[in-house]
Design a protein around this nucleic acid. Sequence first.
DNA 1: GTAGTTATTTGACTTGCATCAAATTGGATG
DNA 2: CATCCAATTTGATGCAAGTCAAATAACTAC
Lengths: 250, 250
Amino acid sequence: MAQALRFRQVPPALKASCQQCSLSNLCLPLAVEENDLGSLEEIVQQGRIYNRGEHIFDQSTPFRSCFAVKSGSIKTSIISESGEEQVTGFFMPGELVGLDSMSGESYACTAKALERTSVCEFPVDKLEELTGKLPDLQHHMYRLMSQEIQNSHQLAMLLSKNTAEERIAALLLSLSSRFQRRRMSPTNFSLPMARNDIANFLGLAVETVSRVFTRFQNQGVIRARGREVELLDLEALQLVTREFSRQCNQ
Amino acid sequence: MAQALRFRQVPPALKASCQQCSLSNLCLPLAVEENDLGSLEEIVQQGRIYNRGEHIFDQSTPFRSCFAVKSGSIKTSIISESGEEQVTGFFMPGELVGLDSMSGESYACTAKALERTSVCEFPVDKLEELTGKLPDLQHHMYRLMSQEIQNSHQLAMLLSKNTAEERIAALLLSLSSRFQRRRMSPTNFSLPMARNDIANFLGLAVETVSRVFTRFQNQGVIRARGREVELLDLEALQLVTREFSRQCNQ
DNA sequence: GTAGTTATTTGACTTGCATCAAATTGGATG
DNA sequence: CATCCAATTTGATGCAAGTCAAATAACTAC
């Protein structure tokens, strides 16, 4: 309660409304008409703030809601019976978490805040009711879920066919464009996740991730000090991700 | 036209209606009330029959419809600019193809018939209209898409963490349970896809797939002659897929 | 049937990345 | 600021699976 209040004051003069949210052009409001925004605001709940490492939900939590990241970032992962973790995604402000969980009783993954993170909560029963009434919103939901399938296919492709360098270049570029969407620097940002999470996500050993980072650094492609990263040569990175395709071509 | 007619006669005494379709308990009709079935039947189009190798759609086809497999099987893959292929899925009767394409103008992948295959076509504009009216159908669509995200995450997990043997065991078990759902033998079936497709899908070299098949055969776990496969020891296969987790545990 | 083509199998060799081990850095806490 | 624990980096070594090569085997079409 106190936290929520405090948060609302952080971006000064912003109420907890979709209409005023700086992310409305990335998030669900993007899909609804001006005059339908009210009905979306009615169902969205101002979520609490999570500290780094806190779970938003885990695989034993009954599935109730999807969450939009408002600030901070979230890591989702599947934890198998034996306790091994597979990171399935990283979510940045404006992105929707939980779409993979709409087919079961519990969440299909565990969502953990990578840093101090605030979210908006969309209870799915109400959301489904609303998408039944607002064709544009329904259409947008289909688009979002479809996009998530595509992303996941891209990841599978990366994992099955690309080298360590290519995978890491692809991740850096993905982060870069997601920062850019939010009008932040696409070349100068701070990684929200640890090397370990990168390694797990990309199906590599931590040591390999570390080695590739230093290799890129020595080549003058990036500059990295801890989690601070500067992409010095975007084109070189794009070239790395395409390298593989080129090789197959001839 | 002639083809559609001919097909309708193949399963004798079955009209081209969801109500009579033997797959209605797997496909979209599963979600709609008896008395709403009519509206679903109104929008579904009896698709044509595709011969082995024919494209149902490819990445340049404007996205219009999702397709339910009626008989036969379909392989979807992403073909990059350079022509390399990444198989993203295999679809069997009762399964819905195209859910990954709902966020763009064209299809996100290419769908190819692996054998003589018939489909039902669901134009998405009409489908979205209908799901807006039938909450149960909408809910089912969300479930299906969500399931597809999960499947894709599972695949990514398989690709990033598991050995060749584990991947192949997992695929065989997946096929097995999908045959079982259709009340066919879970231990004795014919692979719809070539070794090459299996290799591509699982991120392996064809040679490796072949070697694992013979290894499994020598261990008495399966019996394989060409595409005919018999799973002799389901438990052993399940053990293989869990092997990895066990190892991590201790 | 037979030639031509493609799919599958088997063997020999190579390699990218994992693994193991240990040093170094960075953050958190009292 | 000193201690502790976790994260990151670097080096040395081994192996699973890729690659190359070549021999079947299975289809196709004439």
